[in-house]
Simulated assay, not measured.
Amino acid sequence: MSIMAYQSVFRTELFKGHVALITGGGTGIGRCVAHELASLGAIVVVAARRREPLEQTRREITENGGQAHVELVNIRDEESVDTLIRNVVAKFGRLDLLVNNAGGQFLSPAENISVGGFRTVLELNAVGTWTVCRAAMLQWMKEHGGAIVNIVADYFNGFPLMVHTGAARAAVDNMTKTLCQEWGKFGIRINSVAPGTIISSGMQNYPPPVQQMITGGFHTENPSGRLGTEAEVSSAVVWLLSPGAAYVNGACLRVDGGSSLSKAAMIPHPDDIPIKAFLGYSNASRLGERDIPPAFGELLAQYAAKKTTSKL
């Protein structure tokens, strides 16, 4: 075997003889995970709807001595997913590792998202992930065990401009915790990884003004002072799939540089006060200031005097 192009931090042949399925494996984070697992000896199957990026990933891996194969799938279609899992098991005789990375969304203020658009993203990201998990469990892992990692997102403080995917990713994370409890008896471990803002091909989906906002200043607005890389997400996925994480089940590993704890808002908040404050005291300028530093008392007075458009 030639020297692998991908330089993993994990030991060589960690997954030798294992079969790994990565949905959405032709681009971005999924492609990176496929490269790393192949570099560690796994037989990798990359699956998605479009053949061209899958074939490109397969060529990249095989040209560097790895084993990679392509399967087409529409994760929104149950029959397509069942066929995918059946093909993998028939070809390789097993399915040890599953990474649910396939998904999609679009950027939009919540009020502009139609019911149909909202439903489509939930069906793809949440129902699609469930469909693949269920098929893998029923067709192989229920009898033989396995490890699953679901890719979610940094939805923990809401997801402005992508309410649909925030709802879907939260659903997947909760589903992961539920399946951990129900499927542990089958020898199945299932965890999720929540990437923050990652430098990836997915950035092409954002319009130029958003790209400029991210690269112009937002990229430093977290404790690590930068954006993340595909390889950093992949390392987390690989660790969760590995024997080293044998006692990790139902967890959500945040790979976000601490951004979910402290970060800039993706959308600007108003400088005025659109939502009227409730102060309680009839004489807010005096009673409401008891034991409060003067500067904050001034704020209370401003809140009491503020006229807003809110009817609440």
Rank of each mutant, 00 (worst) to 15 (best):
P223H: 12
A304C: 06
A245P: 00
P160R: 15
V46D: 02
T229N: 05
T215R: 14
S39T: 09
Q211P: 01
A264D: 04
S242R: 12
E232N: 11
A167S: 12
V193T: 04
G166L: 06
P274M: 08
V33K: 00
E71K: 11
E78R: 14
V45M: 05
S235E: 10
E36W: 04
L261R: 14
N205I: 10
V81R: 01
L84N: 01
N157M: 07
S39A: 13
A136K: 00
R286D: 07
T131W: 05
L95S: 02
G146D: 02
A147Y: 02
G280P: 11
V33F: 08
L240E: 01
T129A: 05
G24W: 02
T27K: 15
W183V: 02
A304F: 08
V172T: 02
D271W: 11
R31D: 01
I85P: 00
Q204N: 10
G280M: 11
L261P: 04
K311F: 07
V237C: 03
P268E: 13
R50H: 11
Q302G: 06
G93S: 10
T308H: 15
G117W: 12
K91M: 06
L37A: 03
A265N: 14
G258F: 09
P195G: 01
R11L: 10
I85T: 02
N101F: 08
I85H: 01
G28R: 01
G280A: 10
W130E: 01
I151V: 13
I273C: 07
M162N: 07
E221N: 04
T83N: 15
S285Q: 11
S235C: 05
R59N: 10
G128V: 02
A171G: 03
P243F: 12
E232G: 03
L279E: 10
E52Q: 15
P294T: 14
